[in-house]
């Protein structure tokens, strides 16, 4: 008697699983199609006001990046030499100015900036070639 009652009640309140599955599938599809796993980061770009740059002229560490590679003081500098050559000066907080020639891809430029940051550079300003505009 009790058993019969229980079964009749549970069949009376039965909720169909199919609509639930439908909704869950639609949610799943939505999240699969719209989600991305790319890990985006950001790099600070220094945009100093032109007037604040002139009085720092002798402190600026001027690097040049051309299609032939990175140059410091007119001498070529490899990426793995940056730390050895510039670490002491970068540690004092001197700003870096990186002059980039035409024909350099952004990724190369970012790689150099990464290396400078890794050696302790705090502020890196990018400069285009003279007479760019």
């Amino acid at each position: 008697m009790k058993f019969a009652q229980r079964t009749s009640r549970s069949s009376g309140t039965r909720i169909g699983l199919t609509p639930l599955i439908d909704v869950v599938f639609i949610l799943l599809l939505f999240f699969m199609l719209t989600s991305t796993f790319a890990d985006r980061r950001s790099l600070d770009m220094a945009t100093p006001a032109p007037s604040s740059v002139t009085d720092l002229d002798d402190k600026i560490i001027a690097l040049e990046l051309t299609t032939e590679g990175l140059h410091f003081d007119g001498r070529p500098l490899r990426l793995d030499e940056i730390d050895a050559v510039l670490h002491a000066r970068l540690a004092t907080g001197d700003p870096v100015s990186l002059t980039v020639a035409a024909g350099i891809g952004l990724e190369t430029c970012v790689t150099v900036m990464d290396a400078l940051k890794a050696s302790g550079a705090r502020s890196i300003a990018l400069k285009g070639p003279e007479g760019m505009h």
Partner: peptide, 11 residues
């Protein structure tokens, strides 16, 4: 984009 010329971004 990674292939864009750095000069464009600098300008």
């Amino acid at each position: 984009d990674r292939d864009v010329e750095a000069v464009n971004v600098i300008s």
